[in-house]
Amino acid sequence: MRTLISISDLSKTYSGGFQALKGINLDIRDGEILALLGPNGAGKTTLISIICGLINASTGSVTVDGYDIVDDYRMTRSKIGLVPQELTTDSFESVKDTLAFSRGLFGKKPDPGHIEKVLKDMSLWDKRDNKIMELSGGMKRRVLIAKALAHEPEILFLDEPTAGVDVELRKDMWHHINALRESGVTIILTTHYIEEAEEIADRVGVISHGKIIIVEEKTELMQKLGKKQLTLELQHELADVPDTLNAYKLELSDDGLRLIYTYDSQEERTGIAGLLSDLHDASIKFKDLHTTQSSLEDIFVTLVREGQ
């Protein structure tokens, strides 16, 4: 897959001296959904603000489809749609007018047909003549997305699109985002919600303290860093783990009725067969067993901790 956005050695130090980005290098592929995960203040919004032209970078460069974001800003910005984190909408304008304004601002001639399509896709057609101030928070969020799509961008930046949005609307958003990807739009979203990245992203990038800690295919990341755990439900309470089983670094639950074995699923030999055999030798009987895989959230927490 070809690289659509290329970020090289990008740094940003604000006038107060705070270094928000520290030498970011990242390639974003055409047609993918990339989720940027990171705690508050990690630099996610600064990164996308620089690419979109809201903030000047201190050093480094960004190209979009081969064009530099500073020297060829007209080319790069016309390809990008941005949905900001805050609900920053006009108040007195109608929904339809605000979309027409956005389309014009991005240099596209009026196209009522496209505006109608976007409004219908975003379930806003019924509200097209309403003033924006009359809409609910969820609808305003959809208006922001519709505004970003009014000029038919190739790339869509969504800065925490589902922050403060109820579960139903969040799922609705995911559906819309997936539909956009299907239509060929490259999507970069920042989020706090791991489940969001897990649900819709192709790749996941983790930012912490202004640095990209890792960028991986979501499934590979989970496989590579995902630990598996085997939990054995014992038939009889166990006071201590016998010394003969020390090699497995087993954890015994407080009630003595569960043994937990953590192993790397990528290893050729997981050690499960040996463990079961040694348990038999130690006369420890179990009535049930199950395995669990660590979630993206566990991986994220581990990565951020290690990054610190």
């Binding site: 809201l54 910005r77 805050e86 240099g107």
Partner: peptide
């Protein structure tokens, strides 16, 4: 004041 200037800054306008 309202924050909608983000759109102006991110648009391909001189």
């Amino acid at each position: 004041y309202s924050g909608t200037i983000y759109e102006l800054l991110s648009a391909p306008v001189s």
